[in-house]
Every structure is written in C-alpha cells, then in structure tokens.
C-alpha cells in the first residue's frame, strides 16, 4: 500500500486517515492553500496554515472546523509525521510532507520557486516520492524575473497616466492581486480595487499581512478620481459595464498564459503580462531535482509530456490522470475570466 493513494475523493493517507485537498466530503482534510480548487466545502474537519484560514472562512463559512498548522510544525497522526512547508504560490500556501517508517512523500499543491515578496518563499523538501503539479510543464513557459515584469507594468501604467487613461489590470483575487499591489510602484499613483479583491485584502490584512494601501471602488467613486490610477480587478471584470464606466482605460491581464502571443491576442486586452504563481519549466525541474525524489507523480497540466521527459532524464515518473478533473481553478479563472462570487 503506497503511503499516499489517489482515490475518488482525493489524495489519501490511509495510515493517518487524512486527505490532502479532497473534492468530496471527508472526515479530515489537510489543505495546501485557500484557492477553491484545493480548499472545498463540506469537510468535517480541516487542517491548514494560519494564513489560509481567514480566506477559507470567508469562502467556506465562518463555522468550519479548522485547526491551524504552522510551517515545519510536526503533527503525529497514528504514527505518521505530517507537516506543512512553504510552497511560494500564494500567502499561506504549503506543500504537505507525509513520513511514515522512514518513507517520505511530499504533495506539492500549487507552487512557484521565485520569491514574490508576498508569500513565504518556496522551500524544497527532501522526499522519496514527490507529487508535483505541472500546469506550465512545457519548455516554452519560462518566466521573466518579476522585477522585469513589474518594470514593464510600471512603464505601461505611467504611459497610460500621461495619456489620461486609467489602468486596469486583472488578476485572480487571492494571491496574484496582492502580489501586484505589493510590487508595483506606488509613486505613480493610487491603487483601487474591485470588491472581490478588496474582500480578500481585508481578511489577509486581518491575518497579519502588511499590504499596500488600497481603496475600494464603490458606486460613488468617480471617473475623475480614478483617472491615471491603477485598478486591480478579477479577470471576470474585463470588458464588463463595471469596467467600461471608467473609460478611457487601458486594460491588461496578468497570467502565465499570456506567455503565448495567440492567447494574448485572443483575449482582446491591451496588454498581457506573463506573471504566474505556478512554477515555469525551469522552476519545475529545479524543484523536482532539489527534492532528491526517485519517484515523481505529475498532476494538473501537461502531465503526460512532462512525465515522459522526466523518465528520459532518469527520474521515474508517472502521470496521475484519472482524478484531477480539468485544470486548476486559479488558472481556469485566468483563462476563462470566471471568478467565483466572492463579493
């Protein structure tokens, strides 16, 4: 019996009787991060990083039963050592390490290796078997350093300001939105937010995250007030009456999918910034090698191609294809411009 199994309810540790990011109702769930494709409603009992909990409560309800687990804090459940380790994806995001009788598995959840200046930076964890996402597991996905991307974003904002335009950048409301407001140059102007983004900001601030000051756009916010400033909104707000009422605007999308010209062009926005909270191709390889794992199980994304390549470079790998339906909600949100109703 493997230490972690793929079951119809999710990744399962039989010895500890606990699931990782399950999608069906189970008794005990340990949650890698608060994105809705990982943190689902209906579990009897949750375990999660303290930074994930307020967002989970916002999205799943205040009455959920949830136990905080710090990074590197070791839990012992029926002889199994379980701990969370920074995944660098969004604030509170974690990899789950499970160790029993000398055998160690790590489930990565979503992760990126670049320090984004917002989330606790990714830490590689030694293990025998590594379950990795590979949303961007193709050699065409190679992110620029975020400093360079934010320089481009700042220049675009400045140019818009000089042309009397209001800048709107879309990003999903948990993680990417805060990453942007932490990293853009606030000397240029003020940052305004859509309700979905501001709700998340608020709980993260309460949880102790020191976020840049933002102003919520309300019915009373005037066009004049916004002019030349930056609005951060969820992808679903693009080309809606809500966004159109701030015209003249210039709009941009921050998403890893913007790496490809075809995607940029299809999404009728003025600018596309290839800014992702997932590991790029070199990042995936770097992370996998750092675990020292002999076995790698790939989930989410280009699993078959990525596994085939890992095998060719001498790392045992299989794709886990049956269970993960579709792609991550966060990337799906970016792609389809759909955001669950948080506001």
């Amino acid at each position: 019996m493997p230490l972690l199994e793929f079951t119809p309810s999710g990744i399962y540790c039989r010895q500890a009787d606990i699931y990782i990011d399950p999608w069906r109702k189970v008794n005990k769930a340990i949650i890698t991060h608060a994105h809705s494709d990982h943190s689902r409603w209906g579990m009897k009992h949750y375990l999660a990083h303290p930074m994930s909990i307020p967002v989970m409560k916002l999205r799943l309800g205040n009455d959920i039963s949830v136990q905080p687990v710090e990074y590197n804090q070791k839990l012992n459940i029926n002889g199994v050592e379980i701990s969370l380790h920074p995944a660098g994806h969004i604030p509170g995001s974690a990899q789950v390490r499970v160790s029993y009788k000398g055998e160690t598995w790590v489930a990565s959840g979503d992760y990126k290796v670049e320090d984004d200046g917002l989330s606790t930076a990714f830490e590689p964890v030694k293990c025998h078997t590594f379950i990795t996402e590979c949303t961007f597991g193709l050699p065409i996905y190679k992110w620029k350093p975020q400093s360079e991307i934010f320089r481009e974003m700042n220049n675009w904002w400045k140019a818009n300001q000089e042309n009397g335009l209001t800048t709107i950048v879309t990003a999903y409301s948990l993680g990417k939105a805060q990453r942007i407001l932490q990293n853009v140059d606030t000397n240029i102007g003020k940052i305004y937010t859509h309700g979905a983004v501001e709700n998340t900001n608020e709980v993260l601030r309460k949880a102790g995250l020191d976020l840049t000051e933002t102003s919520l756009i309300t019915r009373d916010t005037t066009k004049k007030e916004l002019q030349g400033n930056l609005i951060i909104a969820p992808p679903s707000a693009l080309n809606t009456p809500w966004a159109n009422r701030f015209k003249p605007i210039s709009d941009g999308i921050a998403s890893g999918w913007m790496m490809l010209r075809g995607t940029r062009r299809r999404r009728a926005a003025d600018r596309g910034f290839a800014l992702s909270d997932h590991a790029d191709w070199p990042g995936l390889l770097q992370a996998i090698k750092a675990t020292g794992a002999q076995n790698v199980i790939t989930t989410h994304g280009y699993t078959s191609v990525f596994s085939k390549y890992l095998n060719e470079i001498g790392i045992n790998s299989v794709e886990e294809k049956t269970l993960f339906i579709g792609e991550s909600i966060d990337t799906a949100e970016e792609e389809k411009g759909k955001e669950e109703a948080v506001s």
Partner: peptide, 18 residues
C-alpha cells in the same frame, strides 16, 4: 518535446523564440 511545444504554441517562429 520541441514538437509538443510547437503544437501548443501553434507557430513555429514563436515556439523557437521561446
């Protein structure tokens, strides 16, 4: 793997550039 990447990009010049 290059061919897979090319298929995803849909444009040879761009796939090579990336």
């Amino acid at each position: 793997l290059f061919e897979e990447a090319y298929h995803t990009v849909g444009d040879l010049a761009e796939a090579i550039a990336l």
